Each structure stands twice: as structure tokens, then as C-alpha cells.
Amino acid sequence: MSGPEHWIWGRQPVLEAILAKTAHSVLIARNVGAGQSIHSIEKEATRAGIPIQRVDSSAIERIAPGAVSQGVAASVRLALFTEVADVLDQIPNDTVALLVALDRVQDPHNLGAVLRSADAAGAHGVVFPARHAATVSGGVAKASAGAMHHVKMAQVTNLARSLEEIRRRNIWVVGLDGHADRSLFNVDLSVPLCVVVGGEESGLRRLTRDHCDILARIPMRGLVSSLNASVAAGVALFEAVRQRGE
């Protein structure tokens, strides 16, 4: 399913959007020099038949007010699913499922960083709620370094119901909880897996916890009691990668 059109900015996110065939048009500020990254954007956009327009820098500033745009922006249309089944159905039969679910993660930078880690770990998708949570945007694209254009995403109306659907597919649902008795590093993550990460303020909601097969904590050695949501997701994803010997 194609989602609404969004503006993104930054040279790497725009280049990744072009390569992923999600970009529809590209804007480049007239005062931007012809460096290697701009050359790559122009070359790949031309090859893909995507129109490029040179504009005043103020036009890009209106699209990305206060952001570090690097003088480049693009309009994109992403494949944003509304049902988790649409993501699950695309997991190849010969691979071990690896998913991330976010429970009301509200910071766009955290969502972008999770997408970046998910792409790097080879995850099959990221699931997040449609309400009270960060959604796809130019800021998310920038924070993801373009990974947003490569990771399958499901923006669902009911996260608990989506977790139940994941469990019905024989995928083990592991919720990250700093107060859990069991260490994440003592949990078998080599099985089909969905890691659930709680929101920045309150962590996992009770209903979300109830739909997890197990709760596990990331051991902390310092004085700070918890990790940033995106860092926690990255730790869990790459522990799964390590256990799978990949």
C-alpha cells in the first residue's frame, strides 16, 4: 500500500530514496556546489527518470525549517502498510523472521534510528501504532540515513492485536523491560523473533506486556537505569544476529 506523499531532506536520505524508487521529484539549491554526493544524486535521478529542479535555498528551507537539509530535498511516496499481516506475508519461507515492534515511541529520531538498525540487522519489518507515536517524516528519514526507504513498515491501529497476529505465525515475542528478571543475553533469540520496545517515558504498556511471550532486560552496569529506545532496539537486534551466527 502506498502512503501519502512526504518531503524528505539530506543528501544520503534523498539518494537512498532515489535508489529505492520512492522519490518522485528532487530539489537542489542553486548555491550547492557540485560535489560527489550531489553528482551521485543527479546521476541516479536522471537514470531513474526523476525530475530535478534547481531552486533558491529558501524553497528548501520552507520544506525543512530549522533542519540540516544540505541543500537537497525530495518528494517521496512510501509503501506504508496498515496491517501487520502485509509485512508477515512477505517474509521469505527460507529465512528466520526478525521484526521490531514499537510501543508508542514518540521521538522521530528514535523511530529513524530504529529503522536504521533494523535495516542493518536485516530485519523483515518494523511495526508501530498509528496514534500517540512517531510516524514517517523528513526527520525520520534523516535520522534513518535513508533506511526508511528499505525497511517494510506497518503502522497499525491496534498494537496488541498485531502482536497476537505475530504470535499466531509462531514468532516469539520478546518485550524489553528494565525490571524483568531474565537477562536478554540468556534468551534464545535464534528463533523467529519480534523484539518489542517501549516508549521513551513509560516503557511497555500493560496490554503490550500481556501480549509478549517473555520479558527480558538488557543488563546495565552503570548508574543510569535504562537505555534510549533506539539503542535498546539495536542491542536486541544485533544480539539476535550474533546468536544466529550471521
Rank of each mutant, 00 (worst) to 15 (best):
M1Y: 00
E5Q: 15
E5W: 09
E5A: 15
W7S: 06
I8S: 03
I8D: 00
G10D: 01
R11D: 02
L15T: 04
L19S: 10
A20V: 03
T22W: 01
H24M: 07
S25W: 02
S25M: 02
V26A: 01
A29D: 10
R30C: 08
G33M: 08
S37F: 10
I38L: 10
I38A: 12
I38C: 02
H39K: 15
H39V: 11
A45M: 06
A45Q: 10
T46N: 13
R54G: 04
R54S: 09
D56K: 10
D56E: 15
D56H: 12
S57N: 10
S58R: 15
I63Y: 04
Q70W: 03
Q70N: 04
V72Y: 00
V72M: 05
A74Q: 08
A74K: 02
S75E: 09
S75L: 12
L78T: 06
A79W: 07
V84D: 00
L88A: 06
Q90Y: 06
I91M: 06
A97W: 09
L99I: 12
L102Q: 04
V105P: 00
D107C: 05
D107L: 09
P108W: 01
A120E: 06
H124C: 05
H124D: 14
V126G: 07
R131A: 13
A133G: 01
T135H: 11
V136E: 07
G138S: 10
G139C: 00
A143V: 04
A143Q: 06
S144C: 10
A145V: 13
G146K: 03
A147R: 07
M148K: 02
M153R: 12
V156H: 10
T157Y: 10
N158G: 03
N158P: 01
S162M: 11
L163C: 04
I166Q: 08
R167G: 14
R168G: 12
R169E: 14
N170T: 14
N170V: 12
N170D: 15
V174Q: 05
G178K: 14
H179F: 14
A180E: 12
R182E: 15
S183P: 04
V187I: 14
V187Q: 12
L189V: 11
S190T: 12
C194P: 11
C194R: 00
V197C: 05
E200W: 10
E200Q: 07
E200C: 12
E201A: 15
L204Q: 00
L204W: 08
T208W: 00
D210M: 04
C212G: 02
L215H: 11
L215V: 07
L215P: 09
I218Y: 07
P219E: 01
P219R: 05
P219A: 03
V224G: 07
V231N: 11
A232D: 08
A233Y: 08
L237R: 02
E239P: 08
E239Y: 12
R244F: 07
R244K: 11
G245M: 08
